[in-house]
């Protein structure tokens, strides 16, 4: 395993030992190595520097179509834990871990709260939700009048904003998502269960002494 670390860390800044990453997450060592295959492919798509830039992330999400997307930007910002404008392998694995089918519901709810708290104020505010609704209309072919948007906002805040102070706090969000569990569907990626079969080439690149399953 020391071998893996020393070789990969030369080419991949911030690279962490797969055994260590496996110990911190729901992934096995083999699954971390399979994720490394995915990481290598994304991080070399524009500049082969061993880090994922926002442009590379969007290219991977939208399959080579250049798209500016509020939500993809938000997700990238949450992957960019060190706030350096790029994502290293350790952060890539730790954030994907929240999307694992075995990750806790609490972690998934917390992640969505941060995702939708666009301004990072600790509250999901009405103007932020309006901004996201307008973004979704721009992205899709859906057409909703301003009155309909305000109606959706009224209905949503009536249900979610329990103390009716015009913003959704973390505990209100927990209650709201518990009543609307479909909102967490985006937070579970079944792909993560099959990652070693999706990227079997990890076996040829493994530098871990023994592949744990």
């Amino acid at each position: 395993m020391g071998c893996f670390h020393s070789t990969a860390s030369r080419q991949y800044p911030g690279h962490e030992d797969p055994v260590f990453l496996a110990s911190q997450t729901a992934f096995s060592v083999s699954e971390v190595e399979a994720l490394f295959e995915l990481f290598k492919s994304i991080s070399s798509s524009v500049i082969d520097d061993g880090l994922i830039s926002k442009e590379e992330f969007q290219l991977a999400l939208f399959k080579n179509k250049k798209k500016e997307n509020l939500f993809a930007n938000r997700i990238f910002d949450l992957f960019d834990v060190k706030r350096k404008g790029v994502v290293d392998f350790g952060d890539f694995v730790r954030v994907l871990n929240v999307f694992h089918p075995n990750a806790s519901q609490e972690d998934k709810i917390d992640f969505t709260f941060k995702l939708y708290d666009l301004d990072g104020t600790g509250y999901i505010e009405r103007h932020e939700v309006r901004q996201m609704l307008i973004a979704i209309l721009c992205e899709s072919e859906l057409k909703l009048s301003d009155e309909m948007i305000e109606g959706i906002l009224d209905k949503t805040f009536k249900e979610a904003d329990v103390d009716q102070d015009g913003k959704i706090c973390r505990s209100e969000w927990h209650q709201f998502v518990s009543k609307n569990p479909q909102l967490l569907k985006i937070m579970t990626l079944q792909y993560l269960r099959d990652i070693t079969t999706t990227f079997p080439s990890f076996v040829f690149h493994s530098e871990v002494d023994e592949i744990a399953t």
């Binding site: 995915l38 994304i42 991977a60 999400l61 939208f62 399959k63 798209k67 997307n69 509020l70 939500f71 993809a72 930007n73 938000r74 997700i75 994907l96 999307f99 995702l115 939708y116 939700v129 996201m132 609704l133 973004a135 979704i136 992205e139 899709s140 859906l142 909703l144 309909m148 109606g151 959706i152 906002l153 209905k155 949503t156 249900e159 979610a160 609307n180 479909q182 909102l183 569907k185 985006i186 990626l189 079944q190 792909y191 990652i195 999706t198």
Partner: peptide, 26 residues
């Protein structure tokens, strides 16, 4: 379900930008 009958976050969660599954599709 009509979009007007959905809550705001149901609509938002349909964004393609939130579908990380596409990272795994080759």
């Amino acid at each position: 379900q009509s979009p007007a009958a959905m809550n705001a976050f149901e609509l938002i969660s349909t964004s393609q930008g939130l579908n990380l599954g596409s990272l795994f599709e080759k």
